[in-house]
Amino acid sequence: MHLDHSHDGPAAVSADAHRPDGTRRALRIGLGGPVGSGKTATVAALCRALRDQLSLAVVTNDIYTREDAEFLLREAVLPPERITAVETGACPHTAIRDDISANLEAVEDLEDDLGPLDLILVESGGDNLTATFSKGLVDAQVFVIDVAGGDDIPRKGGPGVTTADLLVVNKTDLAPYVGSDLARMAADAKEQRGDLPVVLQSLRSEAGVGEVAAWVRARLAAWTA
């Protein structure tokens, strides 16, 4: 997968771990999941947790607006030049899986413009349970669901739930109000995912995004090792 090393043009191979100048590129982590599950809130919390130690940037994939990028800008989780919005032509899953060219352009431009980065978070537009990221675009992916979307989602499975490198069950603080059984969700997720990790989180709790941030740090340590 090092086709690009025979010449000095821009990178032609998406998954190549090195930039055209030979330096290691940023780790790319994708965050996907259904609409409203808390992807953008998780990205914002991750930025706040990691920005003091890491050089990071975010790519958002809104379906028809720039709302997610604007939310991150409004919350000032990162300086504006570190947030890029990709337009997806009504097909968010296409832009992260079948035709990743616009997203690759965005991640490469961020590193070209800002200098070497440690981490780029790529947030997908809200989609369905089958939407996963191409391995040509990200090195690892997080699938975010929430307790209010129905506690049967882990049992239903689908590529996002079963194969994502990390499954996040978000908004656990809402469980009592929507009648979701957290123990059942955790057991179903375990059943579907085997040894792959699952985090149950509430961004309103004191622990917040801590477990997910620790997982990201571990991935980054492995990437740079």
Binding site: T88, G89, C91, A95, D99, S101
Partner: peptide, 9 residues
């Protein structure tokens, strides 16, 4: 389906 970005335009 040739992956060249056209789907977004």
């Amino acid at each position: 389906r040739f992956p060249a970005g056209g789907h977004a335009h």
